[in-house]
C-alpha cells in the first residue's frame, strides 16, 4: 500500500515495523509522535481490542483515523480427510463432544481466537482450545492432524484449501468470499457470528483536518489501482474503503463490540 500511495503525496513513505503485544507498542508509539502527519500508523482491528485486553491504554478515539482499506473474514477449516463435511455436522459434533474437538487458535486474545469464542457462544459448541503463536503454526497443526480444526483469515487458509490439505467449512461473514466462493457463510446458515479483521491507517491524535484529508485522498487513489485490487484478491482480503468519518464510526462501533463481548467471552472460557 505504501508504495502505491507514495506517488500521490509526493513524499517518500518510509515503512517502519514495530512488532509487539498485538500491535500495542506500535499504536502507543505513533500516538506519542507529533501530529504533523509525517508519522502515521497502520491500524488493524487490534487497535479496537488492545485496551480491552489491558495491553495499552489506547483506542480509536485517541488517534486521528485516516481511512480503512481492507477487510478479511475469518474461516473455519478442518483437515481435508476429516469426517466433517459441513458446518452443521461439525457444530453438531462439537455440541455432543463437549470439548472433545481440539480447536487450534492463533493466540489467546487474537482476533481469530475471539471468533472461536463467538462461535461457542452463538452455536452452543464446545472445544478444547489449543493456543499457538500465530495463524501459520495453528494451521500447520491442523494439516498435521494434531488439532481437529482452526479459525484463521480467509487469505491465510485459501492456499492450503486449494492444495487439498484443508477443508473450509464456513466463512464468518454476511456475504461469500471472493476466493472461497464455494464455501457457505455462517450468516446464510443461520448463525450471525463473526468479527472480521480489518486494516486502515491512523495518525497521532489531533492531526489537522486538511492533512488527514490529503492523506486519505492519496490512499484512496492508491486504493483504486488495479495493483491493490490484485493484492487483495491474492491475500483473500476484501477491498473496502471507508473515509475518516465512516472509519471513525466503524472503529468506535468495533471497540464497543469488543468491550462488551470480551468480558463475556472470557467468562465463558473460564467457566469451562
Amino acid at each position: 500500500m505504501a508504495s502505491l500511495a507514495e506517488g500521490q503525496i509526493g513524499v517518500p513513505i518510509v515503512c517502519e515495523n514495530k512488532p509487539g503485544a498485538s500491535g500495542a507498542l506500535a499504536f502507543s508509539y505513533v500516538a506519542r509522535r507529533s501530529a504533523d502527519g509525517y508519522t502515521i500508523g497502520h491500524a488493524p482491528v487490534e487497535i479496537a481490542i488492545v485496551r480491552s485486553l489491558g495491553y495499552a491504554d489506547i483506542g480509536p478515539s485517541d488517534v486521528s483515523l485516516i481511512c480503512l482499506v481492507s477487510k478479511t473474514a475469518p474461516a473455519l477449516v478442518v483437515q481435508a480427510d476429516s469426517p466433517w463435511q459441513s458446518f452443521q455436522e461439525f457444530i453438531e459434533a462439537a455440541r455432543e463432544g463437549a470439548g472433545r474437538i481440539v480447536m487450534a487458535n492463533s493466540g489467546i486474545g487474537s482476533i481469530w481466537h475471539f471468533n472461536i469464542l463467538l462461535m461457542e457462544q452463538g452455536t452452543g459448541a464446545r472445544f478444547t482450545h489449543l493456543p499457538y503463536g500465530g495463524s501459520t503454526p495453528a494451521l500447520v497443526s491442523v494439516i498435521g492432524g494434531h488439532a481437529d480444526a482452526a479459525v484463521a483469515g480467509v487469505g491465510e487458509v485459501v492456499s492450503h484449501v486449494k492444495a487439498g490439505k484443508l477443508r473450509a467449512l464456513a466463512v464468518f461473514d454476511e456475504t461469500r468470499s471472493g476466493v472461497l466462493s464455494e464455501v457457505p457463510t455462517t450468516h446464510e446458515m443461520g448463525f450471525p457470528i463473526g468479527a472480521p479483521a480489518w486494516s486502515g491507517f491512523f495518525g497521532p491524535g489531533g492531526m489537522a483536518e486538511q492533512r488527514v484529508t490529503l492523506l486519505a485522498k492519496a490512499f484512496k487513489t492508491a486504493f483504486g489501482t488495479s495493483e491493490w485490487a490484485k493484492l487483495c484478491r491474492e491475500r483473500g482480503m476484501e477491498a473496502l474503503f471507508l473515509d475518516k468519518d465512516e472509519f471513525g464510526a466503524f472503529a468506535m462501533d468495533q471497540q464497543r463490540f469488543f468491550e462488551s463481548e470480551i468480558p463475556k467471552l472470557v467468562r465463558l472460557e473460564s467457566s469451562e
Binding site: 507498542l25 493466540g107 503463536g133
Partner: peptide
Amino acid sequence: GLDPMTAYPRYTFGMSEFLD
C-alpha cells in the same frame, strides 16, 4: 513476556515493551 498459553503477563514489571 506473555505466557504463551494463557497470555498472562509474566515478569514484565508493567512495561508493555516486555510483553513480547
